Amino acid sequence: MKTCVVLDDYQDAALQSADWSRIADRVSVSTVREFLANEDAVVERIGDAEIVCIMRERTPFPASLLDRLPKLKLIVTSGMRNAAIDLAAAQKNGVTVSGTATSGSPPLELTWGLILGLARQIAVENAGFRANGPWQSSVGVDLNGRQLGIIGLGKIGTQMAKVAGAFGMKVVAWSPNLTDERAAAAGVERAASKEALLETSDFVSLHLVLAPSTRGLIGEQELRRMKPEAFLINTARAPIVDQAALIRALEEKWIAGAGLDVFETEPLPAGHPFRTLGNVLATPHLGYVSQNNYRTFFGEGIEDIEAWLDGAPIRTLV
């Protein structure tokens, strides 16, 4: 009997999202709801488990951790890309890494939730409503006629543009390799430069993969180029934006506000400025957290485990 540990099951959803009985006679499965803050805690909790299921990048698996888990033989990750796993170290240690499909719809939907929440001050008005505060305290920002600047016109960015059109927004896009042809195919205008997009957009939404070329792409100079009434939305990866510069921009009102779902340290420490700044609307990295995505991840994760047990791993990253 093999042992499988499902890490970071914050919502206690793993065992309800798929039929684990399919492998019950071959694998003993347990879940961990709490966040494991360091490698010692991970090693202690995983123990001699041969299989680990991880959700995106919640728990990193660098070489230093993999070297301490000699019994580990299979990592199943949601998605087919996980920058938090040292794939070379996994291969060196004889660990197979398998992935699953994911949908871009949940992050897309959450991004629009943040945009609408910022534009109409939904969290502020709801808090006042519940506290018997003033009846109406804000004046909403219209989306119709405003410009959405999309940085990163991939699958999610392209869908963002379609939704923006339904709201009557003008859409411009920029990324380092974006061509006029790709922009036209998505029905958007290619910005002449990143700077031009930032200077003219009312909402700027980031949809890039984190890479050396995109780390710190939005820093102090870029934030100062934005309109003081503009909003920045980041549901991609936190390090794409210089976090210290963003905090200062929000504190000093260089921009009107930010919608954030990703952070350099997760869970975000208590007392962090993003938890208290009044012009931040934030969610705890919920972009991909949806019923359908969980069903896909855990369902295909079980398939990955079955295939590995049968000696023919599928959807392998290593």
Rank of each mutant, 00 (worst) to 15 (best):
C4S: 04
D9V: 13
A14I: 12
L15H: 12
A18N: 10
S21E: 14
A24R: 14
D25Q: 15
V27L: 13
V29Y: 06
R33T: 06
N38K: 10
V42M: 14
D48I: 13
E50W: 01
C53H: 05
C53K: 00
E57F: 04
T59N: 06
P62Q: 10
P62F: 08
R68E: 07
L69Q: 05
L74D: 04
S78P: 04
R81F: 10
N82Q: 13
A84Q: 11
A84G: 12
V97G: 08
S98N: 02
S98K: 03
T100L: 04
A101V: 00
G104F: 06
P107A: 12
L108R: 10
L108T: 14
L110W: 01
T111E: 07
E125C: 06
A127Q: 11
F129T: 08
F129M: 14
A131W: 00
N132M: 03
G133R: 02
W135E: 07
S137W: 06
S138Q: 05
V139F: 15
R146P: 01
Q159S: 04
M160D: 05
K162Y: 10
F167W: 07
F167E: 07
F167K: 02
F167S: 04
G168K: 01
E181S: 13
A185L: 11
G187W: 08
A192L: 15
E195V: 11
T200P: 02
D202Q: 07
F203G: 00
L208N: 11
A211F: 09
P212G: 09
P212V: 11
S213T: 15
R215C: 08
G216I: 08
Q221W: 00
R224N: 03
R225K: 13
L232P: 01
N234P: 02
T235A: 11
A236E: 00
P239M: 06
I240L: 05
A245I: 02
R248H: 08
L250P: 03
K253Q: 12
G257D: 07
L260S: 06
D261A: 07
F263D: 01
T265H: 02
P269T: 12
F274H: 03
G278I: 05
P284K: 12
N292C: 07
N292A: 15
R295L: 05
T296W: 09
F297Y: 14
G299H: 10
E300G: 11
D304P: 00
D310M: 02
